[in-house]
């Protein structure tokens, strides 16, 4: 589920980060605010908004249901969507920062060497932003594993389908004698978070040395 969330979210996050980093357009502040909204909003509210939009009777949810027969609410895909929305700001921020740090002179050099727009994006811009993209993805993945509020609101708590770690811990605590299980799960959660952070740090460092920074 976390992999799916990052997989879907990442290309969109790159596109958004690129728009925000490179272009000045009307509505840019609004887009910026929208992207960062899940960061500030209580997760339960985000989940509720998703429910309104993507629910079976919601404007987007009903269309998806009609055209493709896709139901998002209370499914794994739905949980992935909720996670993707929640970690979107984290990804956009980290990608945008590394895009802004990249020297625009390198793109100019690529232009004078005959590289067109798409060519430049894939061979110069994205590789230069790769530290930010990878770090963003790893942190996002780790955050997804621990998503709680938005998932429980939008996709409920279904073991094996939409249950994230904190949901399982919460469920275990509700059951008499579930403390041991909760402690176990908490340790797993701790380990995953730590590994995720260390991995992102290490990847970022490696890529930066590769880029000679």
């Amino acid at each position: 589920m976390a992999a799916r969330a990052v997989g879907f979210g990442l290309p969109l996050a790159i596109l958004t980060a690129w728009l925000l980093a490179r272009y000045r357009f009307p509505g840019r502040p609004l887009l910026n605010a929208l992207v960062h909204l899940p960061l500030v909003l209580p997760p339960v509210v985000t989940g509720w908004l998703l429910l309104i939009l993507f629910g079976v009777r919601g404007p987007i949810g009903s269309l998806l249901q009609q055209w493709f027969g896709i139901r998002l609410v209370f499914t794994t895909t739905g949980a992935a969507l909720a996670c993707a929305v929640m970690v979107f700001p984290v990804m956009v921020r980290s990608i945008r920062l590394s895009l802004e740090a990249a020297d625009p002179g390198l793109e100019q050099a690529a232009r004078t060497l005959g590289a067109g727009r798409v060519d430049r994006l894939f061979n110069v811009t994205l590789p230069l932003a790769s530290p930010g993209i990878l770090v963003g993805a790893v942190v996002a993945y780790a955050t997804c594993l621990g998503e709680f509020g938005a998932v429980i609101t939008f996709a409920a708590n279904i073991p094996g389908a939409t249950q994230t770690l904190p949901l399982a811990i919460y469920a275990a605590l509700q059951v008499p004698g579930g403390e041991a299980k909760a402690a176990q799960l908490s340790m797993i959660s701790l380990a995953l978070a730590l590994v995720g952070l260390l991995l992102s740090e290490w990847l970022g460092k490696r890529l930066n040395t590769m880029l000679g920074k």
């Binding site: 100019q108 232009r111 004078t112």
Partner: peptide, 20 residues
């Protein structure tokens, strides 16, 4: 003509080599 179609080479003050 856009730069990519000019066939004009440019050497910048600070090389601008692709670091990757």
């Amino acid at each position: 003509l856009p730069p990519e179609r000019r066939r004009v080479g440019l050497v910048f003050q600070d090389a601008k080599l692709f670091p990757h």
